[in-house]
Amino acid sequence: MDVRKVAKLAHLEITEEEVAIYTPQMQKIVAYVEQLNELDTEKVEPAIGGLTPEGQATEAVRKEDKPHQTLGQDSAISQAPDAHAGYFRVPKVLS
């Protein structure tokens, strides 16, 4: 279990002490979920969309290609921590 890599992928900064704490904890979680692999699922179709009838096929939930009312600029940015000239504003990123 490479906790440092997981943290990096999640953009989290963690200390060496935290690595020592989290590693066994996460190993435990993964081992718990690993139990599922003991089942023989050879002949089971993956239920990717869930087990409800709507989840099993797209046929029932086709969306028509017709525009609806949008939130609009003001509402869209109203909850943003920072905005300017109608844009969301974030710390500089390199393209």
Partner: peptide
């Protein structure tokens, strides 16, 4: 889209149009 053109302090900020 990230937009920088014509906007202030682009050395510090990126502007997002979704």
């Amino acid at each position: 889209k990230n937009v920088h053109e014509g906007l202030p302090e682009v050395d510090k900020f990126s502007y997002i149009d979704l």
